[in-house]
Design a protein around this nucleic acid. Structure first.
Length: 422
RNA sequence: GCCGAGAUGGCCCAGCCCGGUAAGGCGCGAGCCUGGAAAGCUCGUGGCGAUUUCGCCUCGGGAGUUCGAAUCUCCCUCUCGGCGCCA
């Protein structure tokens, strides 16, 4: 959510921003219209209340009689007028709020203008793409041949888009989770195990609601959502809190299953690249506003450290205005190379949300004890999404005999085991 | 699920029965005092708008009664305690 004062004072800038994100500008006009009527009614009611307060105080001191009855009648009329204004104002507030919740964050000046993902900018590339002297298998083939990914059984249990990991596949998943969390702990994060279900306020706070509401699993009976990303519970843990300057920065990390309905998505239906439920380790930081863009670079570094540790080739994309998600002002995607598929897989997204989520969740801090509180800045990054990391490991570390070498850094988590499949 | 008690400014807490300007404490800040500090004393310390010393709003959320609601009525949410059920 943006500061209303920015929308009021710089509507042209907001209009240009909406266009750069491929959004309809009608929402801005609806807001401005509702807001100006709302403000004039607010002023009118302020005046009416002033009169009522003054006269009511007099009524309290008056003797019974015709004078008093007359004043009471007058005030009854004023009360009715206030009430009818209030009713109109609450309609206008609904419009205003709806608009406010649907206007995206303002991109940072360093974000490239662009229409869609084709205009994202590769800012960094690391590692060699592996060349094979045999025909490499794609990940689902490896997974089935080694009996470590079971698609059919997953489908039996939950439907298409769900899968089971088995044996060394399940152990590899667990090893990755532990490795990620251990690295993040050394990077200074506090490990958290939050709820896997989240409420309406939480998904609204981080910006998934309302504009991504159809991509979340919703439990109508309890009015709860299945966690779409641990960013939601981790950020909302501090909802409505006023922190001190000394409390900041706060760094949380969590392993948590994440759920996406993926309605209308048809690419990558084979394998585990796009599924309805996946594990993910997430990092969230609450920081002083003036530090947030430096922290974004650090956060990106935190995620990169994991991929390097695994010895996988990857690249970093700076997303353009047209491809950035709703809440962020600047975002890097980290993509790992999957050589058999011949594709870059998005395994992490690191974003600065500035005060956009803090405003929605009312997370503030007091710069000095006697000064008024201000919104913190929030950031998050995946570190990392498990299935795509798994795909990259299986494809990059496969051997001609069909086995898969376990990356060295994971071996301590697998009892020293070096390969899968022999 | 049932019964009971609660929710008041950054924190703690009074006011509610009996409707009429939200009291006090802590913390924090400014000033006085002091060689310096502590203590003490004075003032300030929620939000929005207007910008001279002004006004409006704010007592978990919503609706109602009333000239007027923190206070009365109804509905809801959350917290704590007890009982029940339970891995």
């Amino acid at each position: 959510m943006l500061d209303v004062n920015i929308i009021r004072s710089e509507p042209d800038m907001i209009r240009a921003m909406l266009l750069s994100r491929n959004k309809d500008t009608a929402i801005l006009d609806r807001f401005l219209e509702a807001d100006s009527e709302w403000r004039s009614l607010t002023n009118e009611n302020n005046e009416l209340r002033k009169i009522r307060n003054e006269v009511s105080a007099k009524i309290a001191k008056m003797q019974k009689g015709a004078d008093k009855e007359e004043k009471i009648d007058e005030m009854r009329e004023i009360g009715d007028k206030i009430k009818s204004n209030d009713a109109r104002m609450s309609e206008l507030e609904d419009v205003r709020n709806e608009c406010m919740l649907n206007i995206p964050n303002i991109p940072h000046g360093s974000v490239p203008l662009g229409k869609d993902s084709s205009e994202n900018v590769v800012v960094y590339e690391y590692g060699e793409k592996r060349k094979f002297d045999f025909k490499p298998k794609e990940h689902w083939e490896i997974g089935e041949d080694l009996d470590i990914i079971d698609f059919e059984r997953g489908t039996k249990v939950a439907g298409s888009g769900f899968y089971c990991l088995k044996g060394d596949g399940a152990r590899l998943e667990r090893a990755l989770i532990n490795y990620f969390l251990d690295v993040h702990r050394k990077q200074g994060y506090t490990e958290v195990f939050p709820p896997v279900v989240v409420n309406r306020a939480a998904v609204t706070g981080t910006g998934q609601y309302p504009n991504l509401k159809d991509d979340m699993y919703y439990m109508e009976k309890d009015d709860l959502y299945l966690n779409p990303t641990a960013e939601v519970p981790l950020t909302n843990m501090l909802q409505d809190e006023i922190l001190t300057k000394e409390d900041l920065p706060i760094l949380f990390t969590a392993y948590l299953p994440s759920f996406r309905r993926e309605v209308g998505k048809h690419a990558d239906t084979r394998g585990i690249i796009r599924v309805h439920e996946f594990n993910k380790v997430e990092m969230v930081r609450f920081v002083l506003p003036e530090t947030s863009y430096d922290v974004l670079e650090e956060l990106r570094g935190n995620a990169e450290e994991l991929i390097r540790g695994l010895g996988l080739p990857y690249r970093v994309l700076l997303l353009c205005t047209g491809d950035m998600s709703f809440s962020c002002s600047k975002c890097y995607d980290l993509e790992i190379f999957a050589p058999a598929k011949g594709a870059w897989l998005e395994a992490s997204s690191c974003s600065n949300f500035t005060d956009f989520q803090a405003r929605r969740t009312r997370i503030k801090y007091r710069p000095e004890p006697h000064l008024k509180s201000e919104f913190v800045h929030t950031l998050n990054g995946s570190g990392l999404a498990l299935p795509r990391t798994m795909v990259a490991i299986l494809e990059n570390y496969q051997n001609e005999d069909g086995t898969v070498t376990i990356p060295e850094v994971l071996r301590p988590y697998m009892g020293g085991q070096e390969t899968i499949g022999n």
